[in-house]
Design a protein around this nucleic acid. Structure first.
Length: 554
RNA sequence: CGGGGAGUGGCGCAGUCUGGUAGCGCACCCGGCUGGGGGCCGGGCGGUCGCAGGUUCAAAUCCUGUCUCCCCGACCA
């Protein structure tokens, strides 16, 4: 029973001055959520309805995939995190209780759930398992941003699978991936899954579920049949003609950038090589060489070298006789060539001021560049677009079962490590993504599956009038028919009611006023596209017509 | 963490440079009109200027310190 009079829906005509992202502005303007502190938000009643709708869809699909819902605490002993090795992560909220015991706000629940499984599971007969919960996560983000998009406290659905071996994990992973597909479809999002980086976590496979939108924090490379996070994407580079007409030493005074060198020599930037000196713990200085028109991808580089990298310092360069602005291959400095760098010839730095030279290059090769627009995959040019990560699935393997001692006895009585997967979804991000993807200049346009209400009845009549009575009757009838209806029975003016209805974004709006009484029908407008439904819906026996119309909505 | 910006009624802002005791629009309350796109008229309530200290006869305004928030980047299971 929801009447707008008396409902806590504080709308704003203007967005907060510091809001940038569309979903941030609309979340506040439509009275869905309010900020408490940096990255800390309260859900207001209307917003919480949306969140709950998303949660219910997720719950149904994870249950259907064999999930068993439970609940683990937000506060956890630091000891667990020290054992798993995650205590050192900066984003972990750490604090102490009155007895000075160290505690942690869980950022996810691998440690906790694995401990339970380690204690309870003894035999291969106890596996497999899919356990999950919806629980608040604490993350001390260095930079919360964009309203609900990146917060320091948020509810996540995190699921964990426990299997006897990697084959079992693959099966569970595929089943959960199928559930994820259905979840995002049902939520009405435009989405795709992309391969993602597993590097630091030591997993064996991972996908991210991305909802494209302007406020997205991730860049995704797309081509027909291909989607990958730019962090790890691979593609064929734009071809460049072989270098010709130049050889030997080149005088390039003051030309310290590829653009300057290419401009002065009249060559394509892709015919010169760029040097990117990095330092790793085990290798020391490594000279990464890329085509001049390409950029280093540090995630791919770190993955290729199997260790973290940092840029070399000026002192380290000098010690090797490398000259900033004119760096090139040099005796005694190991080189790593990007895959796009063939043997040559190339224009490269000569390692002395104001000089480049032409030469061929050889060395270890790896794909370490960032893809860019103009590259191709299977002959198709790629595009790159921003997206919100709304979910991720990850083959953890034994990353947690090993340190936390989660093992079982197999058929032969031999102790084996349990093989795990983890699967996260952020309902708040789904909510924000839906706003981002479908909002127009008037406000939000919810997918019907997650909308705070199914239908909004705008009553234009004053209390006591026949128009108002008709609106009330319609509202009652819709509710009795099982539709989730919102009645605007406030004494606001007509324009204000319509404006707020469009801001709030309920998928179907029915208007009952004088005209309705004359025609015997309530006007119906579909929020998506603001399309008037021809003839409206009859006031007599409206529920059936409304239900049918509602079913046809996006 | 680096760079930039901002804290003045619920929201959006002006006032700060050039100290003189706080103002505008919207919202809100009361009355009336209006009643199909945040309508109109009239009358009201509400802030001590993020916080602390200092200078001064006098501080939103000048000085010092501090807290908070936002944006870009770094970072980000």
């Amino acid at each position: 029973m929801t009447r707008l009079s008396g409902y806590f829906l504080p709308t704003e005509r203007q967005a907060p001055a510091d809001a940038e992202a569309l979903s941030h502005k609309l979340t506040v303007r439509a009275g869905l959520a309010r900020q408490v502190g940096a990255g800390l938000w309260s859900w207001l009643p209307a917003g919480w309805r949306v969140h709950q709708n998303v949660v219910q869809i997720v719950r149904e699909e994870i249950d259907a995939a064999g999930g068993q819902e439970m609940l683990m605490p937000l506060i956890t002993p630091a000891e667990l995190w020290k054992r798993s090795g995650r205590y050192a992560i900066d984003e972990v909220f750490k604090f102490r209780d009155r007895r000075d015991a160290e505690l942690v706000l869980a950022m996810t629940h691998e440690e906790t759930v694995t401990t339970h499984v380690a204690n309870a599971v003894r035999s291969y007969r106890d596996l497999p398992l899919v356990l999950y919960h919806f629980q608040t996560k604490g993350r001390d983000e260095p930079r919360p941003r964009a309203g609900l998009l990146r917060t320091r406290e948020f509810i996540m659905k995190d699921a964990y699978t426990f299997d006897r071996d990697f084959d079992g994990l693959d099966v569970a992973y595929e089943r959960l991936a199928g559930a994820y597909d259905r979840i995002f479809d049902r939520c009405g999002l435009e989405w795709y899954s992309v391969e993602s980086d597993v590097g630091a976590m030591g997993g064996t496979g991972a996908h991210e579920y991305m909802a494209p939108c302007a406020a997205g924090e991730n860049d995704v490379a797309l081509a027909p049949g291909y989607a990958a996070n730019v962090e790890i994407a691979s593609a064929e580079p734009r071809p460049v003609p072989p270098l010709s007409g130049l050889e030997g030493e080149l005088h390039t005074p003051g030309q310290t950038t590829i653009e300057a060198v290419a401009g002065a020599l009249g060559i394509d930037p892709g015919q010169a090589l760029k040097a990117f000196p990095v330092v790793t713990e085990s290798r020391g200085l490594v000279m990464v060489m890329l085509r001049g028109d390409h950029r280093v991808n540090e995630v791919k580089l770190a993955n290729a070298l199997c260790e973290s990298v940092r840029p070399a310092t000026a002192e380290e360069l000098e010690a090797q006789g490398l000259v900033a602005g004119y760096m090139g291959p040099r005796e005694g400095v190991p080189m790593l060539l990007d895959d796009a760098v063939h043997e040559g010839p190339w224009v490269v730095g000569a390692n002395r001021p104001d000089h480049h030279r032409v030469r061929t290059v050889t060395g270890e090769r790896a794909d370490v560049r960032t893809v860019e627009v103009g590259d191709t995959v299977n002959g198709n040019p790629i595009t790159i677009e921003p997206a919100i990560e709304v979910g991720n699935i990850f083959k953890l393997g034994t990353r947690y079962s090993e340190p936390l001692g989660a093992t079982y006895l197999d058929e032969n009585g031999a102790e084996q490590l349990i093989v795990m997967g983890s699967y996260g979804i952020g309902p708040a991000r789904i909510t924000a993504a839906a706003i981002e993807q479908y909002a127009d200049e008037k406000g939000i346009s919810w997918p019907r599956s997650i909308a705070p209400w199914d239908v909004e009845v705008v009553s234009l009549g004053k209390p006591g009038t026949p128009e108002r009575a008709a609106a009330e009757a319609l509202y009652d009838e819709l509710r009795e028919a099982g539709l989730d209806a919102l009645l605007d029975d406030t004494d606001a003016g007509t324009g204000e009611k319509f404006t707020i209805a469009e801001l709030l974004g309920v998928p179907l709006r029915l208007t009952v006023g004088r005209r309705s009484l004359e025609s015997g029908a309530a006007e119906a407008q579909v929020r998506r596209g603001r399309v008037d439904h021809e003839g409206g819906v009859p006031l007599a026996g409206a529920a059936e017509a409304v239900r049918e119309l509602w079913r046809s909505l996006p």
